[in-house]
Design a binder for these strands. Structure first.
Lengths: 173, 173
DNA sequence: GGGCGCATGTAATGAGTTACATGATTGA
DNA sequence: TCAATCATGTAACTCATTACATGCGCCC
């Protein structure tokens, strides 16, 4: 449902082919969803069959042809309906990574500290990718801003947890 | 994978039957995952076949029998491995609701404001459930604390967005 | 010439949901 | 007695992923 919204919304701004679409979703919009290529192609086929987009064949020189997808008026209608539905409701995100937090006490404190430090490093690496494209996320400024806010909250929570709940130790400088 | 971690971790603390397990996951642990009953029963069967848990039949008076699941030593091993893996890495959450944020500008500002106000209300309703069980989340204190942190961040971001990006209007008090 | 990136797809598989089905107990 | 809650499960279906397969162009 949200995937359709994304596809339609991007195509609304600019007609393009599937490959590029996936590229955009995997970078600027990675915080919303995790759309793989085969799924995207399948979805685009479905949208085309439903008359929400048209596909036209184009060729660049002698390269194999691309399929350019373009929004139809019916697609625009559907897009707006999906958009209103999406904006009007809060959809709770899932944090699969927080499952382990319920059981931190099981491990010896120093190991727990070590693992959480690793997690923080991994989070920072992920966050730096969001910073990297920060300047020009033409397709999704707000989504990236929203993502950054949550990454900051996550980092703060983890550090706080490390300090307050898991004592202090010299291991993390 | 994280679902297995949750099931094993809860059973580790206390042997119990599937129905109760799902109840716990749907309330205290709703922030991690969204496990439906049939999925839980299926997963428990899988864990039993893999020798990570045992199931024993019990009857309460004349009620239909329950299956009580109990962690085995092998289950404990697997649990610890999954726990270490989970704690050591950051798993980026997905925010399906943020898809619409990319396209807010499409709508007339007052409608956008109205819809986001609705979303905030819906978020507050959801958050109040987390507050409600706040006192005694015996199985998942940290998970609930983590969830609350993100809900606060979400609320702050939405309000900020409403103020800074969508001008001011008298509609919201 | 060889490997990487562009560009598209198919097929097999798997995971999870919905809807359905059952049956006992408890409380209104 | 009727509805809700407890308790478990099956079957059909949808959705998405992985792995596979193809082929051109570009750069080293």
């Amino acid at each position: 449902m949200d995937r359709e919204l994304l596809l339609l919304g991007i195509l609304r701004r600019e007609a393009m082919h599937g490959y590029r679409l996936v590229e955009i979703i995997e970078t600027e919009l990675r915080a919303c969803t995790d759309l793989k290529k085969p799924t995207a192609y399948f979805l685009l086929g479905k949208l085309a069959r439903a008359g929400l987009v048209t596909r036209t064949r184009t060729r660049d020189g002698k390269r194999p042809p691309k399929w350019v997808y373009r929004l139809t008026p019916k697609g625009e209608e559907t897009f707006q309906a999906l958009l209103r539905k999406n904006l009007g409701a809060f959809m709770p995100p899932k944090f699969p990574g927080s499952a382990g937090l319920a059981f931190v006490d099981v491990l010896p404190p120093e190991e727990a500290r070590h693992l959480l430090a690793q997690r923080i490093a991994s989070l920072e690496a992920y966050a730096s990718q969001a910073e990297a494209l920060g300047n020009a996320a033409e397709h999704a400024e707000q989504v990236v801003s929203h993502e950054r806010a949550h990454l900051r909250a996550e980092l703060a929570w983890l550090k706080d947890h490390l300090n307050k709940r898991l004592g202090r130790a010299g291991s993390t400088a």
